[in-house]
Amino acid sequence: MDIDDLKRAWQSQNMRIDKLEEQNKQLKERLLDKSLKSNRAKLLSTYRWLLLIGLLMVPFTIVSFSHLELSPIAVWTMVAYFLLMSVANVYVYYLIYDIDMTNHSVCDNLQRVINLQLKRHRIRIGSCILGIVIISIFFYYISQDDPSLVIGGIIGGIVGGLIGLRKEREIKAMISSMKKDLEDALSE
């Protein structure tokens, strides 16, 4: 098959118009009733919720932990953690918002997506490490009467950590592939 055959084959394609019309009809309905959203829109919505939850955790932490009579250091460390995570979520939200599939070129879009995925990956790792430290402090205070809580916490941490590590490895592999695509695109 030579290039001319390829071109003829490409141009001879005849999409099943009847199937497409039915698909388009359903698509229009779903877009109008907002039941269909792009992945970007869903991600923006997720981060809006994460931001709200993070901010709500600040007063919740202060109020609930004062009942437990925890050390002020533990309480304010947790508050600082939730505030830091809220700032991180705002940052990621704007990175996602900045992605425009319709107006950015392919190379530009790839670069932004790589940047977004890399930042999300690093923030997740950082938040997990910080979270482990914070939870350890928390468990130290509440487990003084009941050490079984520590054991439960450690088991939960190990299982969660293993699942998280596997997921992060997949994400790293995806980022590497995207970087390779971009290098490939930008090379002469």
Partner: peptide
Amino acid sequence: ECMANVWQG
């Protein structure tokens, strides 16, 4: 997904 992005864009 393409059409959802087109709709928004």
